[in-house]
């Protein structure tokens, strides 16, 4: 069992932060890696990227958005409760090195994944410009932490309730026009990563994206997380989750992410009903 030692609700309780006791994973976790989490005996195996880890305390932090039954179930777990299974650290860590000027672009809960990577690049001596965005001010997460981990910092909201009104891609263009950028890292909703990659391709700037397809084992056994990268089948769990943003087939990825939409809807509705009648 993996006990929750700290819990925070973010973005009007649509996003939850859990700090979980997992000393062995904490000792090994590196930015960009993920864990697979299962709440209980009948639960699903859900991949979540590690947002932070503390080897001394023996804890890892995950941040997830409540989108379906499994995450709704996670949300019911409070401090002192435990996840039945946490498996990791999985996937290849993000390759962090000193390159010069690095831009980190994050959207939605992708910012949670982006944060340790941003900090890693800053600590490696890079000049890091961060651009994070959300639909509105309330849904923005980790603003302070991202700001502290960046040399230059921008916020965008779709509705203009905070920072730049519009998409992260608009600010990114501006940054690319005025600076010589060595690497862009984009983590967020698939459409965001797709459009960021489209832009950086025209500027010929290397771009890394972190993918979060559906997974089962997360160790390369099932092939569920396959994604076409440069026309070749790659497994996000062992070959990724980071890939060259210019090579990813985003439409295929989005299609596969929708595979169980109907089932998920039914399970979520049933869960909400059950919780509601309790």
């Amino acid at each position: 069992m993996f006990k929750i030692v700290k819990r925070e609700e973010m973005a009007q309780a649509t996003v939850i932060m859990n700090e979980i006791e997992a000393p062995r994973i904490a000792a090994k976790a590196r930015p960009g890696q993920f864990v697979i989490i299962k709440a209980n005996e009948t639960g699903e195996r859900i991949p979540l990227t590690i947002s932070d880890s503390d080897a001394e305390k023996g804890t890892i932090t995950i941040i997830y958005m409540v989108v379906g039954k499994s995450t709704a179930l996670f949300k019911t777990l409070l401090v002192g409760d435990a996840f039945q299974d946490v498996i990791g650290p999985l996937g290849k860590p993000t390759h962090i090195e000193k390159l010069g000027n690095v831009v980190c672009v994050g959207g939605g809960t992708g910012v949670a994944v982006l944060y340790p990577i941003t900090r890693g690049f800053k600590d490696a001596g890079n000049n890091v410009t961060s651009i994070i965005g959300s639909r509105n001010k309330e849904l923005l997460i980790l603003e302070d932490k991202m700001k502290a981990a960046s040399s230059e910092f921008h916020v965008c909201t779709d509705d203009g309730s905070y920072g730049h009104k519009g998409f992260v891609t608009e600010v990114l263009k501006d940054v690319l026009d005025n600076n010589k950028i060595d690497l862009v890292i984009a983590i967020g909703p698939v459409p965001m990563m797709k459009f960021v990659s489209k832009i950086t391709e025209t500027y010929n700037v290397k771009t890394l994206v972190s993918l979060n397809p559906i997974m089962i084992d997360g160790t390369g056994m099932c092939g569920c997380c396959r994604v076409s990268v440069g026309g070749k089948t790659k497994f996000a769990c062992v070959d990724g989750p980071d890939f060259d943003g210019h090579q990813v087939d985003y439409d295929g990825l989005m299609n596969r992410l929708r595979a169980y939409q109907e089932d998920e809807k039914k399970a979520y509705e049933a869960h909400c009903q059950m919780v509601g009648t309790k």
Binding site: G223, R226, R258
Partner: peptide, 11 residues
């Protein structure tokens, strides 16, 4: 082969 509805036997 990446269409939804195609599984490896393992999966």
């Amino acid at each position: 082969e990446d269409l939804v509805g195609i599984y490896s036997a393992n999966e």
